[in-house]
């Protein structure tokens, strides 16, 4: 099977650049797997896990959590732009759990609507992050 070029970039750094056989991205309309020779596509991603497989057998698979992302498939390859991205194995479950608890507490304590909104945004993000590890 032939490979194609995959890049995953966040504003802070380039997280992945290299050849891969397939990549699974969580688009807003559901997960999809992109193989070599995919027609040009531009998709908004929902928070979730991107899986990049260097071979079809699953060897060298990389799982990365992304939030606020886009996938751009063009003849040159696949580019994933993400506002926030972190390899799944680097997520610290204990830390995230404690942050979730803190956020839940903050949410109960929040008085104004704005405050509640802010905390709930954070909470949603943390829960997405947590869900990425559970799977």
């Amino acid at each position: 099977m032939t490979t194609f070029h995959v890049e995953l970039v966040s504003p802070e750094k380039l997280l992945f650049a290299g050849q891969a056989e397939s990549a699974t991205v969580p688009s807003v309309n559901g997960e999809m797997t992109i193989l070599v020779g995919h027609s040009p596509l531009m998709a908004v991603l929902k928070p979730g896990v991107v899986t990049i497989r260097e071979t079809q057998q699953g060897a060298g698979a990389q799982r990365l959590f992304v939030r606020g992302g886009f996938a751009d498939v063009n003849p040159a390859g696949l580019t994933i732009l993400a506002e926030y991205a972190i390899p799944v194995e680097e997520i610290d479950v204990v830390l995230v759990d404690s942050q979730i608890r803190d956020a839940e507490e903050d949410f109960r304590d929040a008085k104004t609507f704005d405050e509640k909104q802010k905390v709930s945004d954070k909470l949603v993000h943390l829960r997405d992050l947590r869900a990425a590890v559970r799977r």
Binding site: V28, N29, S39, P40, L41, M42, N74, P75, A76
Partner: peptide, 11 residues
Amino acid sequence: GGLEAVYEYEP
């Protein structure tokens, strides 16, 4: 790419 890419958009 040299050729005009016809993009599919989602959504």
